[in-house]
């Protein structure tokens, strides 16, 4: 049970930056209805993220990895009736998470390193095979030499250098 007298109900002021006024959100769920990542596993429900920010559920939000599932297609940007800019909400939460915890490494970074995907596509391999697709969606992974160069580039970033135990090619 959430005790609302103890949560940080001013959290939205800290988090929101590039997005619109999330207090305008009236929970129509269009941002979820048109979102490709909402079909993923785990799903991305931007409306729920907005809700967590508004209720000030700080600890939960810090642990929440779903903002990193956004594929940045911007469909939600087009559809939100209240000018919340849901896509920017995802990015604002990512930034806030990273700023709040310097040791924070979103799972998606490992995925990018290994497959060039921001998504945890490894988890849908069986589903892809079942409908006659390649197990892993084609990206740089199709070109081993280029993947090597890509990973070398990433090794020059702080996050990979400092946590190299997580990034094995």
């Amino acid at each position: 049970m959430i005790d609302l007298t103890k949560t940080n109900t001013g959290l939205w002021r800290e988090i929101t930056d590039n997005c619109g006024d999330i207090r305008k959100c009236f929970n129509c769920n269009t941002c979820v209805a048109g979102c490709p990542a909402a079909e993923g596993d785990p799903p991305l429900f931007i409306r729920n993220l907005v809700r967590k920010v508004l209720l000030g559920l700080e600890d939960e939000l810090l642990e929440d990895e779903t903002p990193w599932l956004c594929v940045t297609c911007s469909a939600c940007e087009e559809m939100c009736p209240m000018g919340v800019h849901p896509f920017e909400v995802c990015l604002d939460i990512r930034r806030w998470q990273s700023k709040n915890d310097e040791t924070y490494i979103p799972a998606a970074t490992a995925e990018i390193f290994e497959t060039g995907h921001t998504q945890a596509v490894g988890q849908v391999q069986e589903k892809r095979k079942a409908v006659g697709l390649e197990a892993v969606p084609p990206t740089i992974i199709k070109f081993p030499e280029l993947l090597k160069i890509f990973q070398e580039m990433l090794r020059n970033t702080d996050i990979v250098r400092e946590n190299d135990y997580m990034f094995r090619s």
């Binding site: 049970m1 959430i2 005790d3 609302l4 007298t5 929970n27 409306r47 729920n48 809700r51 967590k52 209720l55 559920l57």
Partner: peptide, 12 residues
């Protein structure tokens, strides 16, 4: 709060 599916307690 059915939007998060979480029970809420408020000592008002």
């Amino acid at each position: 709060d059915t939007l998060t599916g979480r029970n809420i307690e408020i000592a008002a």
